[in-house]
């Protein structure tokens, strides 16, 4: 896209974008680290994950302030407005993802270094959600609505695995009552991963809003695809 006549406007938008990128990176790192701590029972790693969440929180506050300044100074419209608006929404989701990573780390501490005896589908869910976050970040970077739609579409897989997992765990708990408390902890973590997936989806929805101006929240992924395919790319 062409530069603004006022260079300061471009610089301010770029600074905001840089902060967003930094936040994406940090949140992804924290989620990965929380998972590593979980599967290795590494309490120190869990603690450092919790500590790192403070940086995510600080970035959220910084992005909010930058967006506020941008609105006051430049009164953005059209794609600039959509970007600033989306940035404000996306940082909230990123911050929540950061909280959820810290929540997993907190669980690790509570388990006292004990690793899940039965991990059920946790490693698979972890892989999928980390991939999803990476894909959402790429869609964001490239302002690619089709890639964003694919992220939304794939969230179903995580939801399905999570639902199937819950059914398996119920059966498992019924058959092995001694493992109920352990299973509850694993179920809790699975739920957290599933929630992270939902936040990633929210980010992807905002990418479509930035790229095309479509409001696609609470819209079926198939319908979103139709919407994207049905318009020219002027």
């Amino acid at each position: 896209m062409t530069d603004h006549i006022l260079h300061r406007f471009d610089k301010d938008l770029e600074d905001l974008n840089t902060h967003m990128e930094r936040m994406f990176k940090l949140v992804r790192k924290n989620i990965k680290q929380a998972m590593e701590a979980l599967f290795s029972g590494d309490i120190a790693l869990a603690e450092s994950t919790i500590e790192q969440d403070k940086a995510v929180n600080a970035l959220e506050v910084e992005v909010d302030e930058m967006a506020r300044q941008l609105i006051v100074i430049h009164q953005p419209v059209a794609s600039d407005l959509r970007f600033v608006f989306a940035a404000l929404k996306i940082v909230t989701d990123l911050e929540r993802m950061g909280d959820l990573a810290a929540s997993i780390a907190q669980n690790v501490k509570q388990l006292g270094g004990q690793v899940p005896q039965e991990d059920f589908q946790l490693p698979l869910m972890k892989e999928l959600v980390i991939e999803q976050l990476k894909a959402a970040r790429n869609a964001y970077r490239e302002r690619d609505p089709v890639k964003a739609q694919a992220v939304i579409e794939r969230d179903r897989t995580i939801d399905e695995i999570h639902a199937a997992n819950q059914r398996i765990m119920l059966t498992y708990m019924a058959e092995n009552p001694s493992l109920i408390s352990h299973c509850m902890a694993v179920a809790n973590i699975a739920k957290v991963i599933e929630r992270i997936g939902d936040h990633v989806t929210n980010v992807a929805e905002m990418v479509i809003y930035v790229a095309r101006g479509h409001e696609v929240r609470h819209t079926d992924p198939g319908r979103i695809l139709e919407l994207l395919e049905g318009e020219d790319d002027d």
Binding site: T2, H4, V77, A78, G213, D234
Partner: peptide, 20 residues
């Protein structure tokens, strides 16, 4: 629509201050 999601690149460039 014009100020949130204009359809034409020229409109977008003008209202966002990218013209010229």
């Amino acid at each position: 629509t014009i100020f949130t999601a204009p359809n034409k690149t020229q409109t977008e460039d003008y209202i966002t201050g990218r013209f010229g």
